[in-house]
Write a protein that binds this DNA or RNA. Sequence first.
DNA 1: GAAGACATACGGCAGATGCCGTATTTGAAC
DNA 2: GTTCAAATACGGCATCTGCCGTATGTCTTC
Lengths: 219, 219
Amino acid sequence: MKRPLTAILADDHAIIREGLKLLISVMENVSVIAEAADGEALLGHVRGTRADLLILDLGMPGVAGIQFISDIRALAPRLKILVLTANIEPRTVRAALEAGASAYLTKDGDPEELGAAIEAVKNGGTYLAQTVRFAISEPARNSRPPAAQDMLSPIPLTRREHQILALVAQGMTARDIAERLGISPLTARKHRENLMRKLNLHSAAELTAYAVRLGLPAG
Amino acid sequence: MKRPLTAILADDHAIIREGLKLLISVMENVSVIAEAADGEALLGHVRGTRADLLILDLGMPGVAGIQFISDIRALAPRLKILVLTANIEPRTVRAALEAGASAYLTKDGDPEELGAAIEAVKNGGTYLAQTVRFAISEPARNSRPPAAQDMLSPIPLTRREHQILALVAQGMTARDIAERLGISPLTARKHRENLMRKLNLHSAAELTAYAVRLGLPAG
DNA sequence: GAAGACATACGGCAGATGCCGTATTTGAAC
DNA sequence: GTTCAAATACGGCATCTGCCGTATGTCTTC
């Protein structure tokens, strides 16, 4: 039998994490050598271990979306990243892969997929969950590699847009944001509109729900 | 060895469910005899089996919150219900216990708590996760304590309001909610207004951010 | 059967939002 | 130096929202 693969498991819910650990141990020849409940702990493990795999819940607090994947790739290029999330948005899927994820799994997917994904990435391949496979049919329009300096969300947003999104996550209206940033309410509104267009969202409620789920901090 | 306890496992995420199943099997002398991904399937299992335990994710689609617990209690009074959710709202905890749940566990809790909870309810007791223990000042066995002395004063929401709040967490507007529930948009709007008044929130964004942070499921 | 809570439904009004534009300035990239 | 993206700012218009009312029917509780 070959050397078992080593994995870091990152999920903010301890019970879920424990269950996943068992699931991985049983299904595959994989040994979980570290666990993280937040982004900071995860980065510590990435620096401090030589794991083969990272199973990463994108919904973790302190894990501000896709940018984290780029950061981790920069820290440990050899580490294969398996994203496990409830998010099935095509843009998120594409962004995760472009940022360097080796697999994208959804929590409502078949558990067998976890094994298939580990098998695939072990051999240098990639794996996409059945539920998001449709996401890559749409070609990425530009091949600009992600700069990963201040990206905070799956879709390339400008620095200002990230800032607005964070304030939206705190439940602020356009007027609140304008006051906070010292800009015109109309400008704040425009930024919101640009955000919604980029993210394919169509109401304040959707935008706020999206922002909160990114793990942005509460007010 | 005594006869193993039998359990129904209800969670909408297949991978999470699988992990939980393993976790339960390993930690306790419990055998999962049925699984459900939605409320309808769950009711079928409740009717069709004689399980001892139900481990129930309150965030499941088609599981209209606390009401479901009462319904299941009515169908199978002998079935012990362990609520497992990300929701740590005090009033939800209380409502779940009053509706007949035997344990209330949070997903970010210590996995050991799952074992402790099973042990507790097996012997006819109740178990509350550490993270929500503050929600209850008195044992849940007796009737409601006077609300006047309640320092935390959890705001009581009606069943319908909980339902609306869950839909708000999905980024739905009043019109969306009205369509979903088959009621007038004006009524949906009124429910939203009542919610905001009770929760002291003052915009759609705030209400949505609140709802999402409660751990209510994404659309 | 009286009282109260709940869910239903409607309307006015001011303000915010979603969507469509246009336009200027700045700084980086080429 | 030109080009381009980003950030700034404004306006119109339809819709939605927040807040203030009123009202009816049901159901539980006393």
